[in-house]
């Protein structure tokens, strides 16, 4: 009842929807960078949407399934194969014991998610399974996956077992079978190489010179290779303050665009610090977190301003769509079984 990691890939970690409630102790949320992709992967294998799954970065791992399993892949298309055959994403896939999941080469996007039915049998740390690399917390011993790691699995729940039986009939010689249906295209992430990221002005927006404000909206920024789960480091025009001014350390969060004194912005991601002292120029809207999570180092991003009511409308529309999907999948699973 486990997965065995034969090759770890560039950076593969166990993540969930985040460790909530501990920011005031300096412990950040961590969790999936593309939260929506993780939630979708879970729903496709009949898991609660906040169950732990693997976050896979650019170069995927090679994983041996030591037991029959139901899985789903979402987010970036990193060229997944099972037993050497390409496997389709965004749908439930049945695999037989002894099968190998591997990734050929990245096609689009940056972070993929692998959920398995009933998820991993691991302890929660401070209420979450999420790996927080810097504090060596959660996941598997707080670390990125390494060669020969074993991830124990829970016994698949009844619905998942029924789905496996249904797909099993179609798993001929390849050792796996993917469902013929998939998510509605509107759930597929925007995986264009360059992206437009919508933001709301940050609390210190007015601290910046009119020139810096103009450049921020009009010029693309390149995501540099120094970017990681803590934040995307951006390169573009240098953004200056009207006058040197120090911000008293205060809260920052996922999507905060902060500007250190040298003038190159950083957009914070899942392992962001809980507090910071750099002026907050802008805040990425929640509905665009997935787009941001899928931008590769080297790509360009453009920032576009929207207001708070619009941002919250988009967020609510996204949640409402997900709620509907849950209902549809429940019906579908019931019908299949």
């Amino acid at each position: 009842m486990s997965l065995k990691i034969l090759k770890p890939g560039l950076l593969t970690t166990i993540q969930d929807t985040g460790r909530l409630g501990y920011r005031q102790a300096g412990i950040t949320t961590s969790g999936a960078t593309d939260l929506m992709a993780l939630r979708l992967a879970n729903l496709l294998v009949a898991n609660p949407s906040d169950a732990p799954a693997l976050e896979i970065t650019l170069t995927g791992p090679t994983i041996l399934f030591e037991v029959d399993c139901l899985l789903a892949l979402t987010g970036a298309n990193l060229g997944p194969t099972i037993n050497g055959q390409p496997v389709k994403m965004c749908r439930p896939v049945y695999v037989t014991a002894g099968s190998l999941l591997a990734f050929q080469k990245p096609i689009s996007g940056y972070r993929a998610y692998l959920a398995v039915a009933s998820s991993f049998k691991l302890p929660q740390i401070l209420g979450s399974y999420a790996t927080y690399l810097r504090a060596a917390l959660g996941g598997l011993q707080g670390k990125a996956l390494q060669t020969n790691n074993i991830i124990p699995l829970n016994q698949p729940a009844a619905i998942a077992r029924q789905l496996m039986l249904f797909l099993q009939k179609k798993a001929a010689n390849t050792g796996f079978a993917a469902a013929t249906w998939t998510l509605n295209a509107s759930f597929y992430p925007n995986l264009a190489p360059n992206a437009v990221i919508r933001v709301i002005k940050g609390p210190e927006y007015e601290w910046f010179t009119p020139e810096a404000q103009r450049l921020f909206w009009e010029t693309p920024f390149r995501v540099t290779p120094e970017s990681d789960r803590m934040g995307g480091r951006l390169q573009g025009p240098v953004l200056h303050l009207r006058q040197p001014q120090e911000l008293l350390s205060t809260a920052v969060t996922f999507g905060t665009v902060q500007v250190p004194p040298r003038g190159n912005p950083i957009v914070l991601l899942s392992d962001h610090q809980t507090t910071g002292g750099y002026p907050r120029l802008a805040q990425v809207i929640t509905a665009d977190f997935s787009v941001l999570a899928q931008v590769k180092p080297g790509a360009l991003i453009w920032f576009k301003e929207i207001n708070l009511p619009e941002a919250q409308q988009l967020l609510l529309a996204q949640e409402s769509k997900l709620e509907n999907l849950k209902k549809i999948l429940n019906l579908k699973f019931k019908y299949l079984t």
Binding site: A25, G26, I27, A135, S249, A251, Q273, T274, G276
Partner: peptide
């Protein structure tokens, strides 16, 4: 005054 920057780091 506050805890932040890293887990348990006191200002």
């Amino acid at each position: 005054y506050m805890i932040g920057f890293a887990p348990g780091f006191p200002y």
